[in-house]
Every structure is written in C-alpha cells, then in structure tokens.
Amino acid sequence: MSIPGDLKYTVSHEWIRVKDNIGTVGITDYAQDKLGDIVFIELPKAGVELEANSDVAVIESVKTAADVYTPLSGKIVKVNSLLDKDPSFINSDPYNKGWIFEIQIKDMSELEKLMDSSVYQNKISED
C-alpha cells in the first residue's frame, strides 16, 4: 500500500498535496483498493467555495459508492476532467493521474489538523 511521505491525509482517506496556496486532492491507494474497480465519479464544479470536510464528489464502484470530502476550506479551482472519461486512473495511479480536484486554500492553518504519512499509516493498519 503506497503512502507518499510528502502528502497530508484525512481520516476519510483523502490526500492533499500543497504548493503555494493551491492544494491538489485525491483519494489514497488504500481507499481505492477498498472501493474496488471504479466505474464512475461525479466531479465537483470549479468555482464553488466549500468549508473543510464538506462532500465534493462521489466515487462509484460496482457495489458501493463513497463520498469524497474536501480536506480544507477554499474554492475549487480545477477538476480532473480526464476522470470523466476514464475514472480508472483513480485505481491505477491514485496519487498522480488520479487526482480529483484543486482547491485554493483559504486558511493554511487548517493543514495542521491533517495527518502526515506515518500517522495515516498507523490509522489504516488499525482498521
């Protein structure tokens, strides 16, 4: 199970990569594995402003559906429309081609509430 060290993680299994005030968000390798083969993703709309932990997207596999939550407050600035055509990137490359959206971060201090890779590693080994 891959858990890159340079990312931050949420309890609901999202990752975020921060560069300046823009965060790129996706779901973790662990989450994609639990979901199984993904058949569809309902992407958020660029431009909407959201509070941290609000649901922004829905990922569907054959037998389940899972909400994706935004780890931080801010404005969605970009979505990965590649996933519209082929959501399987979330399965095959969750941390790169499988990114879901970019968010303009409102409050950098919220980052501190997120987990780093070692804490996340511990959390999923408990599950």
Binding site: E60, V62, T64, A65
Partner: peptide, 12 residues
Amino acid sequence: LQAREQHIRREK
C-alpha cells in the same frame, strides 16, 4: 448502476 439505490446509498 446500483450505486444510486437505497441498498447501497441508504439516505443518499
């Protein structure tokens, strides 16, 4: 397309 349905999505 069962992910829309009550037995999977429950209240959603």
